[in-house]
């Protein structure tokens, strides 16, 4: 783990119409760490995640103040290419969303947009992504069958592989295991721990146990505010704030 800051969130507030979803967030996420954002439902976790690659732009009537830096560069800079940003900061959603095409085409979707059209190069990229997503062994013989026939856990790993095919720098994961059985969850967590040497990972875990298993550092969110951040060990064993303690010990949420 290096100490270089990959993402810096500065005084960032976000509103849906007039409803505030995030209030003056200040947060540094370091390169090659797994940072867990946790908190009860509707505390702004997903909004923060989607702000990091500006998927929030799709929401009509949304606005923000403050800013977010990626490698010291403002991601809200109007001169910055949105598609480039999204290629550098990839996201995996809470439900596995495989597009209704073959496994191969799903993974090749991003690289093709990136302008890779040579079959050989595409094959290599897809193979590599599926290997890092820990799905290769299970699907290598049926790459050209529909991705919708995969199980839920396999589909979620496909979604991870699909992002990895773009070789992003930051990986955002929004409760990636919420619909999955324990075995699939274990396999995804293992994948994440392995991936962190190459990527910076921001994870919304689907429970506290998961956060404590995989995260290096963590931040607790409540009602759109960042209550406390610190190393995962410190937050889960000796939180400074009362609210964090209540949540971690299961008194609410």
């Amino acid at each position: 783990m290096s100490l270089r800051n990959k993402v810096s969130i500065k005084e960032f507030s976000f509103y849906y119409g007039s409803v505030p979803a995030l209030k003056r967030i200040n947060l540094e996420i370091r390169a090659n760490e797994i940072f867990a954002i946790f908190g009860p439902a509707r505390s702004g976790k997903t909004t923060l995640l989607k702000s990091l690659n500006r998927l929030t732009d799709l929401v009509y009537g949304a606005r923000h103040t403050g800013t977010i830096l990626l490698d010291e560069k403002d991601i809200y800079d109007p001169k910055l290419s949105l598609t480039q940003l999204r290629r550098r900061v990839g996201i995996v959603f809470d439900l596995p969303i495989a597009l209704p095409m073959s496994i191969y085409e799903n993974v090749a979707y991003g690289p093709r947009l990136n302008g890779i059209t040579r079959k050989k190069q595409l094959d290599e990229t897809v193979g590599k992504a599926l290997r890092s997503g820990a799905l290769w062994e299970e699907v290598k013989d049926r790459l050209h069958t529909s991705a919708l026939r995969l199980s839920g856990g396999q589909q979620q790993r496909l979604c991870i592989a699909r992002i990895l095919a773009l070789e992003p720098e930051v990986l955002l994961l929004d409760e990636p295991c919420s619909g999955l059985d324990p075995i699939s969850t274990a396999s995804i967590e293992e994948t994440l721990t392995r991936l962190k040497k190459d990527y910076t990972i921001v994870l919304v875990p689907h429970n506290i146990q998961q956060a404590s298993r995989v995260a290096d550092r963590a931040g607790f969110f409540l009602n759109g505010e960042l209550i406390e951040e610190g190393t995962a060990y410190q937050i889960f064993t000796g939180p400074k704030e009362k609210q964090t303690e209540d949540y971690v010990t299961g008194r609410f949420g």
Partner: peptide, 8 residues
């Protein structure tokens, strides 16, 4: 959302 998130 998926397509945009992949840089489309």
């Amino acid at each position: 959302e998926v397509s945009y998130s992949l840089g489309g």
